[in-house]
């Protein structure tokens, strides 16, 4: 074989390196992690007494738990180069159906004293409600080929509207005590809030699913080059439906968690959850162009706004600075992503 060809001779036995995708993702994750640590350090330096208290740590984690569950699903969707604006409304809708069913199953329509049987049904109802919206989103995006931005903008409005129809526009405030005191405000191992444990488990499962399974690999492939994925025989349509379904189920779970924590269906307080989740995911290094991203990054990304919020309260800065600070970090993060892509494409 006489293939003495121009391209540079290469040393075959370069030491084994990790996949470039992982290295890039982790490089991005590394930077944003440093930002997070720097934020914590700055706040801690300004007010050492307040920052590292157990209470502040617990509340920051709890307040981030629900958002983190949404963001894990959002990471999958964004890696397929899609978007899901409906998560906050689906959260509310699932909380409502869950609370209503638990009430209906309890004597006098008041589920405050309900037992674990009723609560389990409530959980299932929340998950199924989320799944139904996710399935609808997925079918409209993948089969009807409607842009995900439009589909989920539609379900964003529709899910909230449907929830308000069910409740007549006022919150359901009867939630089983057994649920609220365990999942909602209970702790395990003395100090770790149960809500945080659940979110951590969801995150770990999400990271495992994305990083080590065929499902995860196909998620990257679909976002990277849909045509190529189709040609290699991947059922792209089915995969997209499943990704939106997964996000819906997680939004349903988040609705149940929110119900347990706040003891009410919080009709009006989730209108920007979708944007917060997207911001967290993008801050964490997941590319809106698809094909790139990680769950670890999302975890870090979700905590940055939370830490800013908490930090501003602790050091006495007007909290209205928080969205402005988040906005700056977010735009900077996307700018870096773009610059990196340009550098790559011009090679």
């Amino acid at each position: 074989m006489t293939s003495t060809v121009a391209e540079k001779p290469t040393e075959d036995d370069t030491p084994r390196r990790r996949p470039l995708r992982l290295r890039l993702a982790s490089a991005n994750t590394l930077w944003i992690s440093l930002v997070l640590l720097a934020l914590i350090a700055v706040f801690a330096a300004i007010n050492p007494g307040a920052v590292l208290t157990l209470f502040n740590l617990q509340t920051t984690l709890i307040e981030t738990s629900v958002l983190l569950v949404l963001a894990v699903g959002m990471t999958f969707v964004i890696i397929t180069s899609g978007i899901d604006l409906s998560v906050g409304s689906v959260l509310v809708f699932s909380g409502i159906t869950s609370a209503l069913v638990m009430n209906a199953m309890s004597p006098g329509g008041d589920s405050t004293g309900a037992g674990w049987g009723v609560i389990t049904v409530g959980l299932l109802v929340a998950l199924v409600s989320g799944a139904a919206w996710g399935l609808l989103n997925g079918i409209l995006v993948a089969k009807a080929k409607i842009p995900p931005l439009i589909v989920t903008l539609g379900s964003f409005g529709a899910a909230l509207g449907a929830g308000e129809l069910l409740t007549g526009g006022s919150d359901v405030r009867t939630v089983p005590d057994a649920l609220a005191t365990t999942l909602g405000s209970g702790t395990s191992f003395g100090v770790v809030p149960n809500l945080v444990i659940l979110a951590a488990v969801v995150t770990a499962v999400g990271a495992w699913l994305l990083g080590t399974t065929k499902f995860g690999r196909y998620t990257y492939a679909v976002g990277s080059n849909e045509v190529a994925a189709r040609r290699t025989g991947i059922a792209v349509t089915r995969h997209l439906v499943l990704v939106y379904l997964l996000t819906g189920v997680l939004a349903g779970l988040a609705g149940f968690m929110s119900l347990a924590y706040f003891r009410t269906t919080t009709l009006t307080s989730h209108s920007t959850d979708n944007l917060n989740a997207i911001a967290g995911v993008v801050l964490g290094g997941t590319s809106l162009f698809g094909g790139v991203g990680s769950i670890i990054g999302t975890v870090v990304g979700v905590f940055i706004p939370a830490v800013l919020q908490k930090g501003f309260v602790i050091i006495g800065v007007n909290v209205y600075w928080q969205p402005i600070a988040v906005a700056i970090v977010l735009v900077a993060a996307v700018w870096f992503d773009q610059a990196r892509r340009r550098a790559r494409n011009s090679r």
Binding site: Y220, A221, G223, N225, A228, G290
Partner: peptide, 13 residues
């Protein structure tokens, strides 16, 4: 798929 490495592409699907 641009965002995947050589092995991932060769075995895709």
């Amino acid at each position: 798929c641009d965002n995947l490495d050589i092995v991932q592409n060769m075995f895709l699907g």
